[in-house]
């Protein structure tokens, strides 16, 4: 029993590691602040393109969404970070993370938007178009407001996933929260920094996870 506490809940080690972890947390926050708005915007663009009247554009958008949802984010990240140099482009860890995460999160948000727009009955389009509103106006004032409201739990839940996703940036040595914690672990041969990092993630995300559960349940019943 003491072994478990010593290995996982070693308070002195946690105290020493905390400053490093907080710097990592700051980096995590920076990544999120950049990737989440970009992903939300990119996803909307993907979703709107997937409804284009031009078949080529439509197919490209759907293929894009499916492709970037099929590739594991870590693979995409490694490919961008280690593979692009062979094509002459040498991105920094942060840039590689930004590119890979943008592609990944846009496709997930895009799929959510797309399903939301599709769930709005044709009658709403008929009514709006029959009063002379253009397709774009109908989308902007009638369909999208309803669609976003319908998929809000999915959007929030996906945003939680994005925050958790930042942890894989540690693999390309970007000093975010998990990287800092793992660094502390390898130096102290003790897993308590990892437990501390886990606790920080929990504090950040647990309330939102609870909220999403409640939202999902309310919609289902």
């Amino acid at each position: 029993m003491e072994a478990i506490v010593e290995q996982f809940f070693n308070i002195p080690i946690m105290q020493r590691a905390l400053p490093l972890l907080l710097m990592g947390l700051r980096q995590t926050a920076l990544i999120c602040l950049m990737v989440i708005p970009l992903g939300l915007a990119g996803g909307l663009a993907f979703a709107l393109l997937s409804r284009s009247s031009l078949r080529a554009v439509r197919s490209a958008a759907v293929v894009g969404i499916d492709f970037f949802r099929a590739v594991p984010p870590l693979v995409l990240l490694i490919f961008v970070y280690s593979g692009l140099p062979f094509a002459g482009v040498r991105p920094s860890p942060f840039t590689a993370v930004a590119i890979a995460f943008f592609l990944n999160t846009s496709s997930y948000y895009g799929e959510i938007y797309r399903a939301g727009i599709e769930s709005i009955g044709l009658g709403q389009w008929d009514a709006a178009r029959s009063t002379g509103l253009t397709a774009s106006q109908t989308l902007a004032y009638v369909v999208l407001p309803q669609a976003v409201r319908n998929v809000l739990p999915d959007l929030v839940s996906n945003t939680v996933e994005v925050v958790k996703l930042t942890s894989i940036a540690s693999v390309v040595a970007l000093p975010e929260l998990l990287y800092s914690a793992d660094m502390a672990r390898s130096v102290t041969f003790n897993s308590s920094p990892l437990v501390l990092a886990a606790a920080i993630y929990l504090v950040m995300l647990w309330p939102i996870v609870r909220l999403v559960s409640r939202l999902e349940r309310r919609i289902a019943t």
Binding site: G121, G123, Q124, D126, A127, A128, R129, S130, T131, G132, V142, P145, Q146, R149
Partner: peptide, 16 residues
């Protein structure tokens, strides 16, 4: 379409 008004069986009011 502004000159032609249409009323639908399922009303199609904007719920929001």
């Amino acid at each position: 379409r502004r000159r032609i008004g249409m009323v639908f069986q399922s009303f199609n009011l904007y719920p929001h």
